[in-house]
Simulated assay, not measured.
Amino acid sequence: MKAHPQLTLLALVMALTLSACSKPAQPETETDAVSSLALVSQDILTIATSELSKGPMISGTLQPVIKAELNAEVGGIVTRVLKDNGDLVKAGEVLVQLDQTTFRDKLLSAQEAERSAHVASDQAAKQLKRMQQLNRQNLVTAEVLETAEIKANQTQSDLASAKARTVEARQQLERTEVRAPFDGVVAVRKVSSGDTAQIGKSLMVIINPESMRFEGYIAADQVGSIKVGSAVSFKVNGYPGRRFDGEIERINPQANEQTRQVQVFVKLREQASFVAGLYAEGFISVEQQQSVMLSPASLINEGDLQFVWLLKDNKLVKTQVETGAKDPRFGTVQVVSGLTVGQQILRHPQGALKDGISVTIGSEPTVASKAAEQTQSVSGK
């Protein structure tokens, strides 16, 4: 009897399934794991000492030492604004023009009054001179002479008052032109043409960007550890990857009433094209010492314990270390114990490493070391 083709195929599939299920799973052996690790010199860090600085943290802003807020000294309508934010200005240059009509009329009136007072004073002086001559000839009485003297003195006083009013009117006219007090840059423009400027109204703020300093605050309990001349290292928001240096120029003798922090003024060692008002933070160096310093990327954290991968006899040895202070300049960590100068460790341990694994050091950078170098260059370490 001939077998049915579909039944034959079904029997074959069932036989193959049973055969597959009957085969035991092959366990992974240690020979399948990595038995050695290939490294290059860039992966290795030789332990050496470097400077560890300690001191209080400081935070604040960059502010110009030379700064002027220009206010209206006379009232009037703003007719022209000649400079805008960011424009360079020269000392004496006109920045804002107020309407001069009223003050020009006042000056003309004061000048006319001065001329009239001058004529009256001259006539009174001549009259007094004649009366003095006639009095010596006994042609006029002493009372007439005294009247002439009083008239001459009065006209002299009127002339002095007229001159003062002229000077005042001229000064008011000049104050309608608001000028730059020094070479600098317009930081804030506060008016536009057509605005009404009352006396005392703020018109512009001018700064000298080459006079920047770091105005920061420190905790009150740290003020006893700093002094004028102490070195300061800080970074500025907007300038990533860069650190700047300065030294304490002055210490405010009075703490802030709200925060009770102490203000510190830091003179920059070199000026840069800073923008005023940017936030800055750093630390004041009051103590330096030589110590073994490591980047946090070289450390392995396991709970409260920290380890490094030490190269010993061409093998990796997981070694526990004790860490101490952190250098706020570079973010490096002090190693108190567990390592000695001259030993070598993995610079950037990555992946699942095995204690006791063999190590070979080649000359070409591995993919891991290239990635680590790129990360290091981006972080600015």
Rank of each mutant, 00 (worst) to 15 (best):
A3P: 15
P5K: 06
S19F: 08
A25W: 00
L37F: 08
Q42S: 13
L45M: 13
A48Q: 15
A68F: 02
L70H: 08
G86W: 04
V89M: 13
D99Q: 13
F103K: 08
L107K: 08
A113T: 06
S116F: 11
Q123H: 09
M131F: 14
L134D: 13
N138Q: 15
V140S: 09
A142Q: 11
A142C: 00
V144E: 12
L145M: 10
A152W: 08
Q154F: 06
D158E: 15
K163F: 01
A164Y: 05
R175T: 00
V178I: 13
P181W: 02
R189T: 04
S193W: 04
M204V: 11
R213A: 04
Y217V: 05
A220R: 12
S225A: 13
S230W: 05
V232H: 09
V232Q: 06
G246I: 06
R250I: 00
I251S: 07
F265A: 15
Q271N: 11
V286F: 03
Q289A: 06
P296M: 03
A297C: 05
Q306I: 06
D313H: 10
L316P: 13
V317N: 08
V317W: 03
Q320H: 06
A325Q: 14
V335Y: 02
Q344L: 00
V359G: 03
I361V: 14
P365T: 04
P365M: 09
V367N: 09
K370M: 09
A371V: 02
Q374G: 01
G380S: 12
